[in-house]
């Protein structure tokens, strides 16, 4: 089925919003009605979206290019029209300024390919516009609570999460973590089922571990799987901030530079309105006060599977969810 053939509502929860789509989004877990903010996703043609996007008064918030200079992805903003996100071969989307409506033009390729843009940019943006706080982090469920991994791009967040899933944990999210403050701590919302794993990390897993990652969807820069994700929000038990170090052993200890690390982990850094900035500061303060944050020091020679094992042991010593 191509994305635009199905017109019936496709209800899902992801990143802390209820998604009502006019076409199937296979790697979003089926969702129940909840008190989450709702975003509608409607199919459209690329020509329609290009026509509707204002020619003037727009600002390019984000642009990524390939090494050869070709456009990889762009995000534009207009005060009234909202956001225009597109990436050649991955689709084009208009997101309303309040995040409640997304209109999507999708290429006729396997869904997991266009889902990569949808899950990495479009739905997270809609969630952020609807008040969700998003961190650049991956997370898994261990013992009924979530543990999350933050760090710079390429630090190994997704790889550690994948190895933990291969060892029996459930995926909460890959790369985009939606947080919500609660009275006692922080709750995290599941993301999509799409998980990307580097080829050498896959090779390091046992056959049974690879099976636990879920159905293999295809390969590009990574191999993509439809993983099994948790079916609802979880309390955040711990956050591990990944630091690549020169030492000989994997070490887990208290995290230094906490405010700057947390503040620097915002997923959609181009949202700079006073409301977003203050909300992000508040959730960082609340997280720092209620959730243990550790520095996960990883030497260059360490295998992600060994890191996952160390995290598993460390997390098992933490009692309760939050503090």
């Amino acid at each position: 089925m191509t994305p635009t053939e199905g017109r019936s509502a496709w209800r899902c929860n992801a990143f802390g919003i209820d998604v009502h789509a006019g076409f199937p989004i296979p790697e979003l877990p089926a969702g129940r009605e909840s008190r989450n903010p709702r975003s509608a996703v409607e199919p459209a043609s690329a020509a329609e979206l290009q026509r509707e996007w204002p020619a003037r008064g727009t600002e390019r918030f984000l642009e990524r290019v390939h090494p050869n200079g070709r456009l990889m992805m762009a995000v534009e903003h207009h005060d009234d029209a909202g956001f225009h996100i597109w990436a050649p071969y991955y689709g084009r989307h208009l997101v309303s300024a309040d995040g409640a409506l997304i209109r999507s033009a999708l290429p006729a390729v396997a869904p997991w390919r266009w889902e990569r843009l949808l899950f990495a940019q479009v739905l997270p943006l809609a969630a952020a516009l609807q008040g969700r706080q998003l961190f650049h982090a991956s997370a898994v469920s261990l013992g009924g609570a979530a543990v999350a991994f933050a760090g710079l791009s390429g630090a190994g967040k997704s790889s550690i999460a994948a190895h933990l899933v291969a060892r029996g944990a459930s995926l909460v999210t890959d790369d985009v973590l939606s947080l919500e403050r609660t009275r006692r701590g922080v709750t995290v919302h599941p993301g999509s089922r799409l998980a990307g794993v580097l080829q050498h990390e896959l090779a390091a897993m046992s056959a049974s571990g690879r099976l636990r990652l879920g159905t293999r969807l295809g390969a590009a820069d990574k191999t993509y799987f439809a993983a099994s994700v948790v079916d609802g929000p979880l309390p955040l038990r711990a956050l591990y901030y990944i630091a690549r170090v020169r030492s000989d052993s994997i070490e887990i200890g208290p995290s230094g530079s906490l405010p700057s690390r947390l503040l620097g982990s915002a997923f959609i850094a181009y949202l700079r309105s006073p409301r977003h900035l203050v909300d992000h500061l508040d959730v960082c303060m609340h997280l720092a006060a209620t959730v243990p944050v550790f520095e996960l020091s990883i030497p260059a020679t360490a295998q992600s599977g060994d890191v996952a094992h160390a995290v598993e042991r460390h997390a098992s010593t933490l009692s309760g969810a939050g503090r």
Binding site: L258, P259, L263, P274, L277, V278, L281, C284, M285, A289
Partner: peptide, 13 residues
């Protein structure tokens, strides 16, 4: 501004 355990963060909007 908000107070963390060992730091105060001041945000210029």
């Amino acid at each position: 501004h908000r107070s963390f355990a060992h730091e105060t963060v001041v945000l210029n909007l």
